[in-house]
Amino acid sequence: MKILVTAKRVTDPDAKIRVKADGTGIETAGLEYKLNPFCENAIEAAVQLQEKQGGEVVAVTIGDDDAVQNLRTALAMGADRGIHVKLPDAQMDSDLAARILVKLFEQEKPDLFLLGKQAVDGDSNQVGQLVAEYLDLPQACFASKLEVAGDKLTVDRELDGGMETIQVGLPAVVTADLRLNTPRLPTLPNVLKAKRKPVQELTIDALGVDPALTVATIAYEAPPARKGGIKVKTVEELMDKLVNEAKAL
């Protein structure tokens, strides 16, 4: 089985993000970057499938020059080779990312395209679904369990209100939720090995993708802060505040 999988570079998910004073973006000074956690789940799933039944795992990232570092993490987790489409996040929306990935899908012709269900920076949760529609492929989003049997994939999907199971025929698009697996930490030998794995660099010009955005973020601001609260010392004091001040009980 040949699997294409995403490896998006995101700001450290646990970092406190601050907006630039002029509202043109976020403060990046001192920020660390990581592999998108949901992409880690997708990569882990791809590598596990490969370990079971062979085939090839191709990891793809779209991002600035530094995004190759995170692509190397995907290679260290077990992907065989990488594709780095050079395009900064600021020049991208979900739709453009999807149209780039559609081109790569058409080039690579994988049996399965695994993505993280969302990137924890833009939080849009669109790309996998867009790709599936552009390619007229079945999708299984928010996957928490995957089983392959022949040319069919059985997927458990985490929904509000319960767990759904669907079956999709390959090729298919699957987006990973957090419960799909526990992503492995790359071992040092694998990190070293990953440095020698091939990475193809591409541009959207070379791919023939129109850079136009459908949705553009034109300003960034900090959300209104909650008014500072107080600390109470006892349950009695808490009850008094909830009943008499907040009138919440």
């Binding site: 739709d95 849009s124 459908t214």
Partner: peptide, 23 residues
Amino acid sequence: SDTFSRDLLPRVAARMGAGMVSE
């Protein structure tokens, strides 16, 4: 935005050629 529409709406957007605003 819930798990139903998060699954559905991007496909609708792609099919309509529409930009989508999430959340």
